[in-house]
Design a binder for these strands. Structure first.
Lengths: 357, 357
DNA sequence: TCCAGATTTTGAACCGTTTCAAACTTGAGG
DNA sequence: CCTCAAGTTTGAAACGGTTCAAAATCTGGA
C-alpha cells in the first residue's frame, strides 16, 4: 500500500455556510413556508404557477430537505433495517439485493447490518435501528429469544422474520426441512445408502431443519437414522470450512458415498477437499448443495443443489414489511413458505459397481 | 409459495402510545432535561448519583433516543452511505463487509445502495443520502462526471472514491493496470502467445485499466497489441456471461491458449463454458481471474487469479471517510493504492506440445 | 352583483433533541 | 467566615421540517 497526501481541504472555508431551509425557499419564491411544504409533500394541492416558482427556488438555492427534521413532526421515516447473519454468504447477498430492490421501488433506503451470529451485536444493531426510527426491520434472528424483537414492535417498529415463523409476526422462508428431504431423497434414489450431512453450526435454525429433513427422508425409506453421518464445521458455512469437512469425512466415514451439504459454499468446499484427497465427484462420491447460488450452476462442475428463490425472499419480506408499517390497521400477518426445488446437475450420479455397500 | 393469514394486529391499540421523550425521563429521574442530555452525550460531566438515577429512569421508561431530532440540533449524523455497482459481485460484497466493520467500530451505520451502473439511479441514491444528512459517502462512481459528487461535498458531505483517483478527493483502489499486467505476464511466462481478455463492460473504469495492463505486458515483451483478443460481455461480469464468452472465444479465436478475465466470476464461467465445449483447463487453455474471491481458492479447480485485499479496501475507505467527516480541518486527502498480487493455483500451466502456436 | 362551496394559501404551534450562558454547589485556601 | 475556581445543573432557545385550523381566493349559479 502506498499513500500520497494531498492539500488540506480548506479551500472554500465551508465552516459557516448556513444550510438552505424551507423558509429560504419560501422567501425566494415569494410564498409562505406552508406552501413549500405542500409542494414537497402534496404537490397536487398547489396551483401550477406557484408550484413552478417553488420548484425553481429549490433549484436555484440548492435546497435539500432535512430528513431528520421531517421525521420529527411527520409520521414516517424512510429507512428499513436488514439484519442478516453475514452478507458474505451469497444467500444473504442475493436476499439483500432483493430487499433493496423492493425498498427502492417504494423510495426507501436499506440499512445493512451483519449480526455475525452474535446476539450481542444483533442487539446493538436493533437498538441503533430503533434510534433511527426505521420503518421496520427485516431480520434473520440469531437465537430463539424474541424479547428484543417484541420490545421493538411494542414501540411501533414493524418486524418481518426470515426463516423463523412465529404466528404473531410476518415471516418469509423456504421449507428447509423439505429441502433437506429432497436432497436426501435424491441421493437415496441414486442408490446411495451411506450418507453424510455437512453443515455449519446447528445452532442456526435453518441448518437444523435441513438436517431434520434429511432424517425424515431416511426414515421414510426405513433406513436407520445413523446411516447419515453429521459433520458440523465452523459457524458460517464457508467453502474453506467445507474443505476441512471433506478431510474429516474421509477419515471418519470412508464408507459414505452421498453427501448433502448445508449450503452451496460448503458443497463446493467439500468437492474441492475430496479432489485434493484424490476422490472424484461424482464418480466415487455424490454431493448435493443447498441454496443454488449463481456460481453453483456456472461452475466448471455444475453443482446439484436445492434451489430457493433468494432474491424473492428479500423482495417479499420487504414488501410485507412496508405493508405492515404503512397500513398497520388493515395489515394481517402472514407466514409465507416457499417450496424449494431440486436442481440435478453434475455432482450426483447413480451408484455403480465400485461405490456401493 | 403458500401463505396463511393471521389475525390483525390491533391487540394493543398502539395507535396513541405517546413516545417517551427526554423530558419524561427527566421528570421520572427528578432532574432537568439538560442533565438527561448530558448523561446521553457527556456522561462524565454528570455526578454519579444523578447519572444512576437517569439511567434507571431510561431503563424503566424504555426511552430510546430519537436520532432524527438529535441530528437536528447536534452536528453529526450516524450514518454512512455506500454506493456500489452491484453487491452481488463478491468483490463488492467483501468490500461492503469491510466497510461495515469499520462503521460499526465507530458506532456508525451503513446504508447500502446499488447503482447498477446506472447514473440516474446513482443520482437518486446520492440525493436520498444527502437528505439523510449522512456523514459521508463511499462510492464507486458510475461515470467520470463528478458534478454530483462535487455538489455533495460543497454541502459538507465527505466523499471517498473507490477506484477512481482524483486528487481533490480521498480515494482507495488497487493498481488495476498492474494487476492486468501481472496476469498477462504470468501467461506469457508460461509460453502462451495467443491471449484473450474477457471482460465486463469496458465503460467501467476498472475493467478498462485491467485491459490496459494486459496490453502493457504484451508491449513490454515486444508482442503486437492484437495478440490479445478482447471479448466484452454483458455489463456486470457474471459467471453466466463468462460462459457465453467461452463460446464466443472458441468460435472467433480458436488459437487462444491463455485467457485473462476481468474478474473471478467471469473466469469461473469461462472455464465452465470451455469444459462444456470439451476444452480442458489448464491442459489446453490456461485461465487467470481477478479479485481472488473466496470461492476462487476453494473451488474444486482452484483458480489462478490476481488477489486484491477487498475487505481492506472497504475498511480503509470508511476509515478515511470518518476522518474527513469528523476532522475536516486536520484532514488531508489521500490517494491510497494497493498493489495486487498474483496467486498461482491450478487453472494455468506452461504450454505443451499440443497447445502452442 | 352576491353567495355558498371548493380550492389554495397561510403561519403559529409543535416534534424531540442539543446547546450554551447563566445559576447554583462545593470545597480548598486564606 | 469569606472568596474564588472548578464542577454541576438548569431551562430557554434553537434546529428545520410538518400539521392543521383559519383565512383568502376563486368559481359558477341565482
Amino acid at each position: 500500500m502506498s499513500g500520497s497526501s494531498g492539500k488540506k481541504n480548506s479551500e472554500e472555508n465551508r465552516v459557516n455556510q448556513r444550510t438552505v431551509t424551507i423558509r429560504d425557499v419560501a422567501a425566494e419564491a415569494g410564498v409562505s413556508l406552508g406552501t413549500v411544504s405542500n409542494v414537497l409533500n402534496r404537490s397536487s394541492a398547489v396551483a401550477p404557477e406557484k408550484r413552478r416558482r417553488v420548484l425553481e427556488a429549490i433549484e436555484a438555492l440548492g435546497f435539500v430537505r432535512h430528513a431528520g427534521a421531517a421525521q420529527l413532526r411527520g409520521r414516517y421515516g424512510r429507512m428499513i433495517g436488514l439484519v442478516a447473519l453475514d452478507v458474505r454468504n451469497p444467500f444473504f447477498t442475493e436476499l439483500a439485493r432483493g430487499a433493496e430492490d423492493a425498498a427502492r421501488e417504494h423510495g426507501r433506503l436499506l440499512i445493512l447490518c451483519n449480526s455475525d451470529e452474535d446476539a450481542e451485536q444483533e442487539r446493538g444493531y436493533l437498538e441503533s435501528l430503533e434510534e433511527q426510527r426505521v420503518l421496520g426491520v427485516v431480520i434473520s434472528p440469531v437465537d430463539e429469544g424474541t424479547e428484543t424483537l417484541e420490545r421493538l414492535r411494542e414501540r411501533g417498529t414493524a418486524v418481518v422474520l426470515l426463516g423463523r415463523p412465529r404466528h404473531e409476526y410476518c415471516s418469509v422462508r423456504v421449507d428447509d426441512a423439505g429441502g433437506g428431504d429432497l436432497a436426501a431423497e435424491h441421493l437415496l434414489d441414486l442408490g446411495h445408502r451411506h450418507l453424510a450431512f455437512v453443515t455449519a453450526a446447528l445452532s442456526i435454525g435453518q441448518y437444523r431443519e435441513r438436517l431434520q429433513g434429511v432424517r425424515r427422508a431416511l426414515q421414510r425409506r426405513g433406513l436407520p437414522e445413523d446411516s447419515c453421518a453429521v459433520i458440523e464445521v465452523g459457524t458460517l458455512g464457508t467453502a474453506a470450512e467445507g474443505r476441512l469437512a471433506a478431510v474429516q469425512l474421509r477419515e471418519q466415514h470412508p464408507e459414505v458415498t452421498g453427501v448433502a451439504c448445508g449450503n452451496d459454499l460448503l458443497a463446493l468446499g467439500v468437492i474441492a477437499g475430496l479432489y485434493r484427497q484424490g476422490v472424484r465427484v461424482p464418480d466415487e462420491v455424490s454431493v448435493v448443495g443447498f441454496d443454488d447460488i449463481e456460481i453453483a450452476e456456472q461452475n466448471p462442475l455444475p453443482l446439484t443443489t436445492i434451489h430457493q428463490p433468494k432474491a424473492h425472499l428479500g423482495y417479499l419480506a420487504t414488501t410485507l414489511l412496508l405493508d405492515e408499517a404503512l397500513h398497520p390497521d388493515t395489515h394481517a400477518h402472514q407466514q409465507v413458505i416457499f417450496q424449494p426445488e431440486l436442481r440435478v446437475r453434475e455432482t450426483t450420479r447413480a451408484i455403480q459397481a465400485q461405490g456401493g455397500k
